[in-house]
Amino acid sequence: MHIPDGFLNTATVATTMVISAGGVGVAARMAGKEMEEKKVPLMGVLGAFVFAGQMLNFPIGIGTSGHLVGAALMSILLGPWSAALVMSLVIIIQCFIFQDGGLLALGANILNMSLIASFSSYFIYRLSGRAFGHLPRGNLIGVFLAAWSSVVLASAACALELGFSGVVPLGVALPAITGVHALIGIGEGLITAVVISFVRAVRPDLIKSRVEMVR
């Protein structure tokens, strides 16, 4: 759901740029506190994995495809601040090297797929931990729900931005865009659950029984 240039009006471009710059700034400060020795290569590996995963569009029928976002995966393994930071890095590299996502839309894309996706999956993962029990005992349901809703919420934010920009009525954009991403989100949920299961098998220590956010 990378927004290209030409979709957003000036007010939306400015607002999302300011929010994202602020959000990434705070994340840069907070990610340092989340930092542990083992996270050093993990951040790089997850960034590389998510970048590659985002290239693999899977068909969802109706002549449409979707791809992994990866924010939930990072949020569960790194914590939300580091996740937001690495996700922003991926989106910035996609924008500047691969012309995927507009330059002016960079703020909106970071807001949706990095900040909103990382933090929504973090909170939903924690909430579902309370409901279904925490990893590593179980809770792949929570992993799936966190990943699914991160995509749907990011797409809702995208729809709001397009609606506010006046390119498409909000009443049309919101159901259409979130509807498609409710399907794409199933892919996100399944991929995230599979990867978390794999990590749990090879490096269970990387999965915190309970993700705590530093404050």
């Binding site: 979709f7 002549g63 797409s155 397009l162 498409v168 954009a173 259409a176 865009i177 498609v180």
Partner: peptide, 22 residues
């Protein structure tokens, strides 16, 4: 990978604002 338009591109085409993309 699937070459079909992604979720946002699909909606942009259906609702007729895809050509605004620069």
């Amino acid at each position: 990978a699937s070459a079909s338009p992604d979720g946002l591109e699909r909606v942009a085409q259906n609702e007729g604002f895809a050509e605004l993309a620069e």
